[in-house]
Design a protein around this nucleic acid. Structure first.
Lengths: 257, 257
DNA sequence: CAATAAACGATCAATAGCAATCAAATATGA
DNA sequence: TCATATTTGATTGCTATTGATCGTTTATTG
């Protein structure tokens, strides 16, 4: 296989979550370790990726620093606070019990759970096509989808109002993202997301919110639910102490990844 | 072989993934290494391709057909009889009325309809994630999905038996693929596909079958339905005359793309 | 905090792709 | 028909890329 072809595959693997492991590449490229390392080194020197121990990731969301293909707002968000989101995703994945069924809401932070779910044999109900794509290579993970129409802005599946879209599903845990969180509760940028998430919340025993610390300083959006409906918040170390205290006062369990 | 003919073949090989290896060209063009290099040099000087060590690729930004991952049986099938499938897909798309709702079954032939559906403002119900991906860039096409579990072998959504997976949907036309077709009826390789397709058939006024002519000589599989349930068959000119006659005797309308 | 395993970088031989030159075949025009 | 121009094919070094094998560094786990 040739360098150009390998590069194409690397980016293809990199796009969904912003990260590829060295192991994945070994299988995907069918090339010797030395060659893979050389490819990664070259791509890093040209600024197109960032190497990390064990793989490579897309550069953190500084805009206009290279000829990367990212059109949708979603693709732009993937690289925002990528490191924090990866840590949060990993911590969230650690809460899943092998073999159980969980719900994962769409979002760039929840997306980062996916690489860590491999091998757990989970049953994942999600409304996000991005998450479907990320989970597709994991043979042991069962993917369930609700019915509905595809909403392109967020690449999620949206059921018509009042319609039963996921019959007979109930899960111990829902992992949810958000545009912002504050004392008023959890907020989303787009009102149509609110309806979708509310439906998920109603079907979960426990609601776990995944938000990087920048979401605590944003305030715009439509309210999804109050803090009383949230059981756990997973965030990064950038959270302000008073925010942490406020969450715990509201009875929310706080996990800092 | 003339230079023009070689150039045509080079682009043909280049289109699917955006890259051709020098080795591939050697087989494909049946020309001496020197000639191939000269062709590539010339095409690069005119800006139509970019040469890289070991082959050539399309210039950046010329991202007409997105890069696809090869390896699964599905991806291998895509290139089988591609020309015929494209023609069939185009003919099928021509049967769609602007603004109407249609159902499209998963398959490599039905997939070829997608490029021709842009601008029709259709409402497409499909169980195939491949078709979802193909339709995603078409802003005017509304995509509807049934609920269910993702079945990886074929990348389709499979509803649990007996469950209502697509409430309140009914379409004038179903476009369906098949593994084989003969006097006994329409066949699929995998029994799980049969259940999925049967459910679609029940919701359609008219069933249109898309099969390239090689499907007439295959005989293996599970029977999906008899010829009496098929209204129209679209195939390529490779169909044997006696087969064509048999279809028309069975009351099936035959379209040769 | 130490042990272990994985990932890393550097070096070197082998291979594959490359450019340049020249010879042969084919086309073109008087 | 002959001469000339253009295209194709073969040969020859040369360079780039690859894969294997080291020893070293870095995460991870108990």
């Amino acid at each position: 296989m040739h360098a150009a072809e390998r590069e194409r595959r690397i980016f293809e693997a990199l796009r969904p979550t912003g990260f590829v492991s060295y192991r994945d590449l070994e299988v995907l490229l069918d090339a010797s370790p030395a060659t893979i390392r050389r490819d990664l080194t070259r791509l890093e020197e040209s600024g197109q990726i960032v190497r990390v121990h064990g793989g490579a990731k897309l550069p953190e969301g500084d805009d206009a620093s290279g000829p990367r293909l990212m059109g949708t707002p979603f693709d732009q968000n993937i690289t925002q606070n990528l490191g924090a989101k990866q840590a949060i995703g990993k911590a969230a994945a650690a809460l899943c019990q092998p073999g159980e069924g969980v719900m994962i809401d769409g979002g760039t932070t929840t997306l980062q759970m996916c690489p860590h779910l491999d091998g757990l044999g989970l049953q994942v109900l999600t409304n996000s096509l991005h998450i479907v794509n990320a989970l597709l290579p994991q043979a042991g993970t069962r993917i369930l989808l609700p019915s509905g129409a595809v909403f392109r802005e967020q690449n999620i599946i949206l059921a018509p109002a009042g319609e039963e879209s996921m019959p007979r599903f109930h899960a111990p845990r829902l992992f949810m993202g958000a545009a912002a969180i504050g004392p008023q509760g959890v907020m989303q940028a787009d009102p149509v997301l609110v309806a979708a998430e509310r439906r998920l919340i109603d079907r979960a025993e426990e609601v776990i919110l995944l938000v990087d610390s920048s979401k605590f300083s944003t305030q715009s959006g439509t309210i999804v639910c109050g803090l009383d409906e949230i059981d756990t918040v997973i965030t990064d170390s950038g959270i302000a102490p008073d925010m942490a205290a406020a969450l715990q006062d509201a009875g929310v369990k706080l996990v800092v990844a």
